[in-house]
């Protein structure tokens, strides 16, 4: 189980090397909070692959959003909630009316596990952890609810990156036409991809440069990796492209072993 507390992210510290963190599927976070009338930045649980089993100590309203669908439900005091395994998609969001009330660290409740920072004790949740919920008695208020991530049936759209011209025609062509598999080594830092190696035009050395959520770096192995919510703020590999913001959630919902393609954003 890899479940962490996340909100919309931690901002203002990129120049010190602190990743933004926050929900991998930002749309699902927004939806879960909107369903409960929460602040859009309220902290939720991000479950990866499988759901945690939850017991609510008192009557609680919650919302569940994944790539499969969404629902709101009300749990009675002492009730244990078990969820069906995800039919598809990889990350599910559990929001609670009022939001999870872990301390705000540097402006955010998001967990950054490698830095042991934020969230619940800066770590992945374990059985037995007890998390406080802010009780605001908020009203159910469904405003504009963003859509679901859906399945990555279509190719993920990319905008060419600053070093796109470092790749030869073959390399760029491979990038935009071949199929990649999500590696099991993927995590909140980045989605690592396996497939045909992308060939470089030159054996160039790069000096460390900026990275954003969605930047696709290509290390010498030629296997691209898409930098995600816990991305390092700088990196030393050529940046072949950037995933368009709307499509990042499609990536966040891909399981290890699933396949994807890229296409150039119109």
């Amino acid at each position: 189980m890899y479940t962490t507390v996340q909100d919309a992210g931690r901002f203002g510290y990129l120049r010190y090397g602190l990743p933004p963190s926050g929900a991998m599927d930002r749309g699902a976070l927004e939806m879960a909070n909107a369903l409960l009338g929460n602040d859009p930045n309220a902290a939720v649980l991000e479950a990866t692959g499988i759901f945690p089993v939850i017991k609510c100590s008192r009557r609680t309203r919650l919302a569940v959003v994944s790539a499969n669908g969404f629902q709101t439900l009300e749990a009675g005091a002492g009730e244990v909630l078990r969820f069906q395994p995800l039919e598809f998609g990889y990350r599910a969001y559990l929001a609670f009316a009022g939001g999870i009330d872990v301390p705000v660290v540097m402006g955010s409740r998001s967990t950054y596990v490698p830095g042991k920072l934020g969230g619940f004790e800066g770590r992945v949740l374990r059985a037995g952890d007890v998390l406080p919920i802010r009780d605001q008695g908020s009203q159910l208020h469904v405003a504009e609810v963003p859509g679901l991530a859906g399945r990555a049936g279509n190719a993920i759209r990319v905008i060419p990156g600053p070093e796109a011209d470092w790749f030869d025609c073959g390399g760029l062509n491979t990038f935009l036409t071949s199929e990649f598999t999500v590696s099991s080594k993927s995590d909140r830092t980045g989605i690592r991809l396996e497939g045909a190696a992308l060939s470089f035009r030159h054996g160039r050395q790069m000096v460390s440069a900026g990275i954003a959520f969605g930047t696709i770096q290509v290390p010498p192995s030629g296997q691209p990796m898409v930098m995600m919510a816990d991305h390092p703020t700088t990196g030393g590999y050529p940046r072949i492209g950037n995933v368009v913001q709307e499509d990042l959630r499609l990536l966040a919902q891909l399981r290890p072993g699933e396949r994807l393609r890229f296409r150039e954003s119109a």
Partner: peptide
Amino acid sequence: FKPLGEGVLLAQLPPRI
């Protein structure tokens, strides 16, 4: 000046330390 996806601009000088 180059974009890095949406909402990010890179102001670049020749690469060197």
